[in-house]
Computed example of a mutant assay.
Amino acid sequence: MKRDCGMVWRHYCALNELYLKGQTSAKISSNDFINAVLIRQKRFLRPKMGNLKILEAQKGYKEYYEKEFKEDFERFNTFLSTHKLSLDARQKYTADDILTLIFIEDNKSALKANLTTIRKFSNVVFKGFGSKYLESRPGLLKAVCKLLDISSFPEKEPKNLQWRLTVDCLNPKAIVLCENLAFLKTPWAAREHNVELWYVGGNNTAIIDYISNDKLLLPIYYSCDWDYHGLLIFQNISERMILKGCKIKLLFPNDPDERLPVIMKHHKSKWIPGKELSGLKQSLFNVAYTTLIQDLIKNDQWIEEESFEFVELLRQNGVIVDYLDKRL
């Protein structure tokens, strides 16, 4: 699915109109993706002869739309309509905004029970956009408050923040503990492969103490940012799991070359210079893991969990291979 392409809800509406009616008068050609890819590169769209204000769909557009946008549009449209959120095509929800709103609705009870300040909530739930993201988008903030059934966020943090955010499935074959919320925002991908997801980022790691014994019989994996803090949380979780007589495997990035510089906006985790493996316990990492970590430290880089392709990540780490083959 094409989600990280700078499109907002009105663009999705216009592309759906092109799919259904073959044309639209919506002004969408200023979007970089639509202009560069759909109009110029693939030539799926072009201005109407005699009326350049109207875009017309060309051969191949319907097939492309069905592959890249149709499922998301229908899911987003159903959600916004069901919860009586604005369906106005002028609404500036991004795909990530809508996925996050869906996530908030799915985890309403847990999020509301330990409600944080608006900036903490924004920094965690809308990760990657900064702590002021919600404050700067009053329409999105209004939608969040409506879903949580609150009038405002508290001014102070709760003393013990223990969100228990999960993607449950009826017949789990494995459990993946996630540092970030990205995978939990697309729960259908996990359920399709009988994988249960738990959010254990930041102060939430204590919830693993309450994993039931029957769940400990399943293979358990950990997905995280490959930076100092992400791997340090893995170390903490590994030690907790050892006390429970269980091991957890760190998921190796499906594309280890997709890296970011450590020094960048909204990223605060830095490697510790002068310490072997940045002070992490080497016994927890095999040769391949150690080599990658050393290379990231050397080049002052990190790998973001959100860059992982979920299903491919599970396949390459052997999480779903055994029973995936039976379904094909």
Rank of each mutant, 00 (worst) to 15 (best):
M49I: 10
T94I: 08
K59Y: 05
T78M: 09
K67N: 10
T82F: 08
A95Y: 10
E66S: 05
T82Q: 15
R43A: 12
R40N: 07
Q58K: 12
D106T: 04
Q41T: 10
D88T: 13
R90H: 13
K48Y: 06
I98A: 11
Q41F: 04
Y65T: 02
T94A: 07
L99C: 10
K127H: 09
G60L: 06
L111C: 08
L45N: 04
F121W: 07
K84N: 15
L45S: 04
L87D: 15
R75C: 11
I102N: 01
A57S: 13
I104V: 06
R43I: 04
K84S: 15
L52H: 09
T78C: 12
K48W: 06
L55W: 02
S81L: 12
R75Y: 07
L45P: 06
N77H: 14
L87R: 15
F73N: 07
T78H: 15
K48F: 05
K120P: 00
R46S: 10
K70N: 12
E71R: 13
K108M: 06
R40V: 05
A57L: 02
K53F: 02
G128T: 02
K127I: 00
E68P: 01
N107V: 08
K84I: 15
R90A: 13
G50Y: 07
K48I: 05
S81G: 14
L115P: 12
L55V: 00
L55G: 03
F79V: 12
Q41W: 02
Q58D: 03
M49E: 12
L111E: 11
R46V: 02
K84F: 15
Y61A: 01
L85D: 15
L87F: 10
K70S: 13
Y64P: 04
D106W: 00
L55N: 05
I118M: 12
F76E: 13
F73Q: 06
L115H: 09
H83L: 15
E56Y: 01
F103K: 01
F76Y: 15
R40G: 00
A57C: 01
R40E: 05
R40A: 07
K59S: 10
A110R: 06
G128V: 01
R119I: 03
D88S: 15
N123E: 09
V124D: 11
E63A: 11
I118P: 00
G128K: 02
M49P: 00
E63D: 11
M49V: 10
N123M: 00
L85F: 13
E71W: 09
Y61D: 00
F103R: 02
G128P: 06
